[in-house]
Design a protein around this nucleic acid. Sequence first.
DNA 1: ATTAGCACTCTTACCTAAAGAGTGCTAATT
DNA 2: AATTAGCACTCTTTAGGTAAGAGTGCTAAT
Lengths: 357, 357
Amino acid sequence: MNVSASNERKSSILESLTSLYINTARPVSSSLIKDEFDLSVSSATIRNILVELEELGYIEQPHTSSGRIPTDKGYRFYIDTLMKKQNIRDEEKNELKLACLSSAHKTQEIIDKTSEILAEISNEAAINFFFNLSDSVLKHIELINLSLMQVLVVLITDSGIVRNYIVNFNESISTGELKRISNFLNENLKNTPLVDIKTKLYTLLNEHNLVYLQLAHEACRIFDALEADELFERDYDIHQDGINNIMNQPEFFNLEYLKDVLDVFESKERLAEILKDSFEPDFNNAKVTIGKENRCKGFQNCSLVTAGYKIKDKTVGMFGLLGPTRMAYSRMLPLVEYMAEMMTETLNDFSRDERDE
Amino acid sequence: MNVSASNERKSSILESLTSLYINTARPVSSSLIKDEFDLSVSSATIRNILVELEELGYIEQPHTSSGRIPTDKGYRFYIDTLMKKQNIRDEEKNELKLACLSSAHKTQEIIDKTSEILAEISNEAAINFFFNLSDSVLKHIELINLSLMQVLVVLITDSGIVRNYIVNFNESISTGELKRISNFLNENLKNTPLVDIKTKLYTLLNEHNLVYLQLAHEACRIFDALEADELFERDYDIHQDGINNIMNQPEFFNLEYLKDVLDVFESKERLAEILKDSFEPDFNNAKVTIGKENRCKGFQNCSLVTAGYKIKDKTVGMFGLLGPTRMAYSRMLPLVEYMAEMMTETLNDFSRDERDE
DNA sequence: ATTAGCACTCTTACCTAAAGAGTGCTAATT
DNA sequence: AATTAGCACTCTTTAGGTAAGAGTGCTAAT
């Protein structure tokens, strides 16, 4: 048999072994491969091939005389080259879509709902990480007097995010004054990216006449207060669900692993860190980070499947699915991709609503 | 020796045993009690007393010829009668207080922060459950046009809660119209409990002249939409932190227990259920629910320490601390009580600000 | 190049024995 | 009558040792 044919068979056996291991969670023996896929070769032949695959670093034995499991490199090759993506069932698609639609335009809620439903359907831990806040564009700002020296600032952005900030002042502000500031801000800052607001305000300060000057000054006071209050510090929303799912996976019967993962899931900051690691500006297909490819040391036995969603072609958030490296990639990748697609659709429908206005 | 003296000694030994078990997490032997507390009696005498305590149901042996551990009944007696509450260290008090102050007037944030810091200091799992929303009083309502058929409703209550709801309409509403509705609502509904708003609106419908009639109709449309949207469905905020803390406790090395607890902690609904169970209208001191006293079957080896906080003498939320039944009650109770006290203070300061306005 | 056959390795489960902790009981002591 | 020393007994824990089972790697035959 020539080399190319031999390579083909090697691949086929690696694929079989990987999918068997994913399904059974136990090291795969040569005879199991023979039994499950009628390869018209003996187990001894398969064993010879397994030795080659092991030498190439795609598989390994937990101990001599046990079956074999894929290495990170093996999974990588399986995902990139061998695996066929499964189709998602229509009813599952509907559920995922519904999670977006039912809470469309309520950003905080959509983030919770989508990660919840994704966790349920995938049976892994799911994360939704929406990080566009500072990139998004101001649509409307509303100032509401709470008390003499307190103002509630409601920011509405083009992506439908609504945020409240309470700003405390040292001097009192009258309702009329507030009204004028708010009109001024809406007139001048509409469609300005949040990050640019301060700069634009200072430009306005230099450009306009005295009345405006005073207004802009007061407006600056508000945005200064927002910053001082560290309110732009965390400019993302993140939600996670389904750790209880991965607890049932045999790899997490080891309490140490479980503890490591739970530690990360308890902290929104660390979760955000990790998701950021797999960010890519152009994020069309799902991306997988396998085992030791993860920088985070608690995730060395886990894989993270991520897919980004966009507003007007700009990635503004990501879904993540975390499970053991032995994960049903052929199902998880399309799942996350579809979820991200739906999220993109929903968000862009909202943006379109804006423009129609 | 007479009966009363003997009872005193029994109590003293139960106390010693309980606190030893809380500290060491291992069944307590007669000789350990003798060694740790110089009782000027022999271990044999202590053993005789232990038998009596066992017959009374306060302690039990995991197996014959092991040391003894308190039963739920034993813990109950320890907490209600024997235990002396520890003083909280000043620096800890400061930390707890700071968590309230630093995010005062930002209800969602204060709930997150306080449960976080409480978990850290207690080294158990902490919960903050704020359930007053439907009881609280409308302070201000703001309507903001998002698009032709969408309105953002911002509700501000006397307890400083800010909530956003997006309401979708079938017909379009002009900005002017919206302004009028919002003025009408603020004039007529200020200081109305949220639960009574609908009734009050309908009363207004019958009372006023034609102009008002139309306005009230439109206002009703908004609140109808809010209800249809199931937005009053969950009228509480709840936040949990520190499950990783209890993972380090030896009783949770058993994965089954851990799983049961995690399952509950994953669901805000179930957490709320459980906290509700220990609600009391007049909630001054911390309350403990021990082991099987918990209705929730996953918590049969856990204790829940709760304390309520108030606005104007009405309980509006609770702190909870969850850990193994073998919990440092003498420290945890004062901790939760102090945290609740601080929360009460902070919330009432805010209410006072209102009235000054 | 493939395969049957088999010796070898490693894991797992199960058993046994020994050590250790702690009790309950009895009989002696205060 | 209460206390206690002493000791047999029970149960857990640890270690070691053996047998069964799974799966491999190698060799020699096809």
